[in-house]
């Protein structure tokens, strides 16, 4: 058996698994209980947030804490436009508003590196929340907003579609020259610039693409939330969650953030419903143990197992 047949076999198996998963998830609302669909929507949302985050921050090493800002923009778009426009238009708008915000932020933060970039983006989340509050208070006089409700199956399919498109984009980015450029920025930004990579353009565009998907996720989820105000929409939790989920899964591979987010979100659901009074304690202990024993995330652990299995 030569290497190429092994590879083909592998990719055929991989392709089959993906196809089966796609079909299972498409047909799921037909036979699964309603709450399974709702829970999966939430898990998909976390996967979208995490994969989008990892799309930019994974290869470049820039830790963005802006997801909550983009997510909140999506939510607010749904709250403001939801009653006037068709759902799909609202969601795409949510994505584009986030996209443009990300272009602006990206252009502003070019000089910032490392922790300064992270905290800047976090400050941005808080600033938007406070300014929005000020605006609603003194200009529009709004006191919280009801968001138009949508059936859970519709929300599920939209979130699912969002996720599938995001994954296709992510695979494309990883495999293309674009992805190579991103990784070279992560390794050494100055060197990348010298070799002719348009560092600025690559960074900003990727940042904006990742923001687009977070924004659409926010616009979709808002319809499940029903009622929002600035601090509910711009909740810093949604900046930290994707980072933690991605580190938990491991950022080296595309599927690291995916399984990281899925397991993290499911584990959390399990704990808040089964051990509600000790959820934080158990979750905290799991986080500490996880990072102690799998410093490279789940991906690192699985890769180690594979190697170990081969030797034994």
């Amino acid at each position: 058996m030569n290497i190429s047949t092994v590879l083909t076999k592998r990719s055929v198996v991989g392709g089959l698994v993906i196809l089966i998963l796609l079909i299972i998830f498409i047909t799921l609302p037909l036979y699964a209980p309603a709450y399974t669909v709702i829970l999966l929507t939430a898990i998909f949302m976390y996967i979208v947030l995490t994969v989008s985050w990892a799309l930019f921050s994974g290869p470049t090493g820039y830790m963005s804490l802006a997801p909550a800002a983009f997510f909140g923009v999506g939510i607010y778009t749904a709250a403001i436009l939801g009653m006037k426009l068709p759902l799909i238009v609202v969601i795409v708008c949510g994505g584009f508003f986030s996209f443009f915000l990300a272009l602006l932020v990206g252009a502003l933060t070019l000089r910032l590196r490392g922790i300064y970039f992270a905290i800047f983006t976090f400050g941005l989340v808080m600033l938007i929340a406070y300014l929005l509050l000020f605006w609603e208070l003194h200009v529009t006089g709004t006191r919280g907003r009801f968001v138009i409700a949508v059936g859970h199956n519709t929300v599920y399919y939209i979130m699912y579609g969002n996720l599938v498109i995001l994954l296709i984009v992510a695979v494309f980015v990883r495999r293309s020259k674009f992805g190579l450029a991103l990784r070279s920025i992560g390794e050494n930004e100055d060197a990348a610039a010298h070799t002719g990579v348009n560092v600025t353009l690559v960074k900003i565009v990727t940042f904006a693409i990742s923001a687009f998907f977070i924004g659409t996720a926010g616009a979709v989820m808002a319809t499940r939330w029903t009622y929002i105000d600035p601090f509910i929409a711009f909740n810093p939790l949604f900046s930290f969650m994707p980072v933690l989920m991605a580190i938990f899964g491991g950022t080296g591979q595309l599927w690291g953030p995916i399984i990281g987010a899925a397991i993290f979100a499911y584990l959390e659901e399990f704990l808040i419903t089964r051990f509600p009074y000790y959820y934080m304690l158990i979750f905290g202990i799991i986080l500490v143990i996880a990072i102690l024993y799998m410093p490279k995330g789940l991906v690192g652990l699985i890769q180690k197992w594979r190697k170990g299995g081969g030797v034994v």
């Binding site: 930290f240 938990f248 934080m280 905290g284 202990i285 986080l287 500490v288 990072i291």
Partner: peptide, 9 residues
């Protein structure tokens, strides 16, 4: 990540 765990605990 570890500090987040500590925060929760």
């Amino acid at each position: 990540l570890a500090c987040f765990g500590l925060l929760f605990i």
